Simulated scan of single mutants.
Amino acid sequence: MVLWGVSEPSTLPRLRPKKSLGQNFLVNEGAIRVIVEAALRTPAPRLLEIGPGPGVLTERLLDDGRPLWAVDLDSEACALLRERFVDRPHFHLLEGDAVRMGLPEGEPWSVVGNLPYNAATPILARLLTEDIPWERMALMFQLEVAQKLMGTPGTKAYGPLSILAQLCARLTRLVKLGPGSFRPAPKVDSAVVLFEPRADAPPLAERKALLALLHRSFAHRRKTLANNWQGVLPPEALAEAGLDPTLRAEGIEPRTWLAASRALASRLPERLAP
């Protein structure tokens, strides 16, 4: 799906975007509607917004009435959000880094966010590998990152994050956006990806070990698995785990990687363990 043209919100709160925080504020009204509708199309009892900035998405999410927690690292944005939503008792602000700060425990979330470009990958990795219950996620990424998430075996885009994400969720690209959909305009296109959890997703306890295996296997994309694991695991160990040591990592599909991770769990060196 692609949105043509840009219709900005009638009132856009003033907030100085900070390049150091990777901030590009969404101003495409059509995209705002798509993201909010996708995030709210779930019975999840709580909403979690990452990187609310001036609160363009926040305002519409709050209209739904569900409790909303917003996480932002920018103190200026947090001051603006406190002022804007002081009369909304179901609005809760968490000032800090979404990559590492603690989140309230409890019922499942619907997660939404125009993720800062410089932190999007570690934020997603955290959501996929930590005990953060979510029923749906609608997240904005740089287009190149979105393409990697949805990459297929044998393609340049396919990699560790593709495999983990596709094992954990069904992914749908909702919309592609050009630079003009943001203020300031970035130099790249962006895309919103919808994540819906898979019933057969690997347990949390297995996911970090899987990532460790994948990062080592993809360390040098042009090399075979045997070469990437040289001096750590012998080719016969890879073969016994269902991985052809003569192949490159990008040629192996996600379910094979999961089975191999389980088979190799006791053989991975401690320094590669999660």
Results as ranks from 00 to 15, higher is better:
207 R>Q: 01
251 G>K: 13
228 N>L: 09
191 A>H: 03
221 R>D: 06
63 D>H: 13
221 R>C: 07
119 A>H: 02
205 A>P: 00
39 A>L: 04
117 Y>K: 04
91 F>W: 06
219 A>V: 00
235 P>V: 09
200 D>Y: 12
216 R>K: 14
75 S>L: 12
46 R>D: 05
113 G>C: 05
86 V>H: 15
92 H>V: 11
12 L>A: 00
9 P>C: 12
127 L>A: 03
210 L>R: 06
145 V>H: 00
271 R>D: 15
211 L>P: 03
40 L>S: 12
146 A>V: 03
38 A>Y: 07
263 A>E: 10
230 Q>P: 06
23 Q>C: 10
126 R>H: 07
189 D>R: 13
35 I>T: 03
83 E>F: 08
265 A>G: 00
165 A>G: 06
57 L>E: 06
172 T>M: 00
53 G>S: 12
150 M>D: 02
170 R>W: 05
9 P>R: 09
62 L>I: 04
50 I>P: 05
67 P>F: 12
267 R>D: 13
28 N>L: 05
50 I>H: 04
149 L>E: 10
234 P>L: 09
198 R>K: 11
236 E>D: 14
50 I>F: 10
256 T>I: 12
162 S>Q: 04
106 G>T: 05
110 S>K: 09
83 E>T: 12
244 D>V: 11
161 L>K: 00
259 A>K: 15
1 M>I: 05
126 R>V: 07
254 P>D: 10
189 D>L: 01
91 F>Q: 13
72 D>K: 05
218 F>K: 01
196 E>A: 14
168 C>Y: 11
188 V>E: 10
6 V>D: 03
221 R>G: 05
234 P>N: 11
136 R>W: 01
236 E>F: 08
179 P>E: 09
123 I>L: 04
